[in-house]
Design a protein around this nucleic acid. Sequence first.
RNA 1: GGCCCUAUCGUCUAACGGUCAGGACAUCAGAUUUUCAAUCUGGUAAUCAGGGUUCGAUUCCCUGUAGGGUCACCA
Length: 519
Amino acid sequence: MTEKKENLKVRTRFAPSPTGPLHIGGVRTALFNYLFSKKNKGDFVLRIEDTDMERSKKEWEYDLIKNFEWLQIAWDEGPVLPEGGEIDFKNYKPAYLGQHAPYRQSERKELYKKYLQELLDQGKAYYCFCTKEDVEAQKEYLMSIGEPPVYRGKCRDLTKKEAEECLKQGKDSVIRFRCPVNRKLAFDDLIRGRVEFNSDIMGDFVIAKDMENPLYNFVVVVDDDEMEISHVIRGEEHLSNTPKQLLLIEALGFRVPQYAHLPLILGTDKKKLSKRTGETSVAQYKKEGYLPEALINFIAFLGWNPGTDKEIYSLAELVSDFSMEKIQKAGAIFNIEKLMWINGFYIRKKTLKELTELLLPYWEEAGFIEKKSFNIYSVKETGEEIEFEKLEKIAALYQERLKKLSEIIEFTDLFFKKNLIYEKELLRWKQMADAEVAESLKESLSIIMGLTEKDFNKSNLEKILMAEAEKMANRGNLLWPLRAALTGKKTSAGPAEIAEALGKEKSAERIKKALSLFS
RNA sequence: GGCCCUAUCGUCUAACGGUCAGGACAUCAGAUUUUCAAUCUGGUAAUCAGGGUUCGAUUCCCUGUAGGGUCACCA
């Protein structure tokens, strides 16, 4: 039964259930499957496990595909988004790419039925008519005496005739797998090495509610075989499902794939990453302004590393350097600090145009600007027009300050607001007296007014400003009140660059406003 | 509770059985700065415990401890 799929093409799969938003753990599993298959010139398959019709939703399936598109993780086979705009989820059906379509389990029921019937006919599976309550009570009892809580009902000894009789009477039933007694089940996990289980710990588990509703452990085995999956790479939470699947594979006469159980991604509480201990949905990270390349780079390094000091990796580089042997065995805590650092790094790497384009939706979302025509936006609060190049200048000021794109809102509101609201005290640098602050602002104002519209740029401003500032006891005496007047903030980029981005008129206006606080 | 998995700085991790136990993030100090950021320099910081095996264990073995996963008519 341990005949391996050697010499076969490498084929991996990611098989999510569309029961919620795509989460980080899912991305990691998908990523490693993708990397391994690409590294080995193989195929990567996406299969939608929607056998649980109650919990599965097409919206989630759509969300999943959308997010992978954003992450740029592409599959060779599986569902792809239909062309066109609005999605009607009631009738939503993806197109399928590949030889083994459909890739949705809900559309593959005939296949499962065939194998289910086969197991039933061979007596390897049987109908069970025990009530949920009875099974539950038995489990609790077994647990209380320290035995494995497995099904040891009587239905396994029912003759086919008796079973048929019960079926005819319309008794509630499920289909169980006849689990062999005291069988050693071993496999060589690519990450963990040899792992052994005894068949007695699982009892006769349920493989289908009925002929129409097969369950996870059964369908996985059928699909993986039918789709010729060579390597099953999945989270460690599936480790204990493996012996059940091994048994099913044997019963159905399938070939055993190679298994690789990935360490879990942990929350700060060291438990499996969940909503409680940190954001888990990819969509949320996207919304906050994490770049896909940062997320991929970061997630790849959760439980894997190339064995060198290189830490910045594109998806393509990951493919070429990936190796299963370098995968960690222990779980890894999702460390948001490092993600932020990597994200900041990738933000700094963007061209100004790219960055500005990425920021546009955030400014629009915040209600700062509105697109008017190609390259022209209007500032909503003032009605002024602002062209893309100007927005680029603003973006440039914050490129090295951003850790995530959404931060741009709090950084740049000053460019889009009519009036700034701040305390008078903000304008004071160290121990300056009121009169000194006013004097300083007047000096700045005259410098600004002294420049023509044409000469009003960062380098000219900096030259004059610094020359003046040097004359003072402390450069801050000139620079701080000016910067504070222009921005209304404790922290920001330098005054010259802010003034340039703001423009002469607006800069002057802001200084006058600040000055008015001292009269 | 049964079964299974795991264990190096706070975090992610490197180290054919021989290294001053290395790197990155975070942190601290310094340089640069009007502020913040970025950048540069430097520092603090780890082999879970106890037994073996060995000339020599972070590394191999055992026991313990701790953490995690899983025991559905979910996946």
